[in-house]
Design a protein around this nucleic acid. Structure first.
Lengths: 96, 96
DNA sequence: ATAAACAAGTTTATAATATAAACCAAATTT
DNA sequence: AAATTTGGTTTATATTATAAACTTGTTTAT
């Protein structure tokens, strides 16, 4: 009746990040920070977790001289996001 | 863009409880425990939090000689649940 | 040239949460 | 009457989220 919600996605900030990445080819750290309103520290940590889970990949490079961190969702991440949304729906319309 | 998710509802078990209560007149502890698969301890704690928030009310009585704890959603709880669902939708279809 | 301020993060510490384990009282069963 | 079950609560532990502090390098102002 109530499927388990992937704890990696059931987090406000991680969900926002995945949600953004699901709709776009790639996004860099600064963009994600602006869109989510998160602090750098929090964002950094949550990006690490998503990366460790294999839900996103991170590429570090430079834009001019400034460092730039680019994030991209993986197929596994897309799948997990889809599954999470499906599971969540079970919670939102639980009419017995 | 990404509204804040009510932390009281953004919890797997509390969300399941509210979700059940939203669709039914009332439900007792045992029923909630069976439906959610939660441990008694966890359920007890989360019911307390929902009660403290004014999202549900709890009535203690007896069914025969056995104790019985009955939970009911409040108007505030219904409202909060609705708001939560609405907010969540912003996360699930964030196509930029 | 140097100091001050800013950019882009990371690391570490703290606070909050969720969960499980242990416990309790009363009722029921054997 | 001893053991088990019911219906929980309390307390402890593990995990998580978040914020604060720090790092490295860059740009701007003096």
């Amino acid at each position: 009746m109530f499927p388990k919600l992937d704890p990696l996605l059931h987090s406000e900030l991680r969900l926002a990040v995945i949600s953004i990445l699901a709709g776009v080819d790639e996004a860099d750290f600064t963009y994600l920070k602006k869109q989510t309103g998160a602090t750098s520290g929090n964002l950094s940590v949550q990006i690490d977790k998503l990366t460790a889970a294999g839900y996103i990949t991170v590429e570090k490079g430079f834009k001019g001289k400034m460092p730039r961190t680019t994030c991209k969702i993986t197929p596994a991440g897309q799948e997990a996001f889809k599954d999470y949304v499906d599971a969540l729906k079970q919670y939102l319309n639980a009419k017995p």
